[in-house]
């Protein structure tokens, strides 16, 4: 383990061509699968939380195989914070709009007053909106957790 820590300190951990090429090929497919899980969350296994974790895992994989600078190039700290807050705002916003329009908090059928699609369709579409919000927030928090733990909070170089 000491050897591993030495390697991690000199940033030689996992510095191999096979790993880098495999990760570069895998990351787009992992992200596509994460989006699929989020979008199909309301009528099949999966959902916002699991899809968000898969999306976050793709960025963690980038930071693990390359270094933290590469993962910042694909998603910077600022974009990460904006996406996370946007996710939480979508969740709360949908719920609050439902309450303001006249229904209960997160009662999507009340949104029928704004855009008349029918209450049943709005229940299906409303849970989809909430899942997207949850997915964005979870992705942001998972990536942030890895960045902070692997660099002891300094966000400079990572493992």
């Amino acid at each position: 383990m000491k050897q591993l820590q030495e390697k991690a300190k000199q940033r030689q951990l996992g510095d191999s061509l096979i790993i880098k090429t495999a990760v570069r090929l895998m990351v787009p497919f992992i992200q596509l699968f994460g989006l699929y899980v989020i979008v199909h969350g309301h009528y099949s296994p999966g959902g916002g939380f699991q899809g968000g974790v898969i999306l976050g895992a793709s960025f963690i994989l980038l930071a693990l195989a390359f270094d933290m600078k590469t993962s910042f190039k694909h998603m910077s700290e600022k974009v990460n914070a904006i996406l996370g807050n946007l996710g939480a705002a979508i969740f709360i916003g949908v719920g609050l709009i439902c309450a303001l329009v006249g229904g209960l908090f997160l009662d999507y059928s009340a949104l029928n007053i704004i855009i008349p699609l029918g209450p049943v369709e709005w229940r299906s579409f409303g849970i989809f909106l909430v899942e997207v919000g949850v997915g964005l927030a979870v992705m942001s928090i998972m990536v942030l957790l890895y960045w902070n733990i692997s660099s002891s909070g300094k966000m400079d170089e990572g493992l």
Partner: peptide, 12 residues
């Protein structure tokens, strides 16, 4: 995720 977080914490 949790395995990665554990390994990241252990290496530090």
């Amino acid at each position: 995720i949790s395995t990665i977080l554990y390994i990241g914490a252990i290496l530090r």
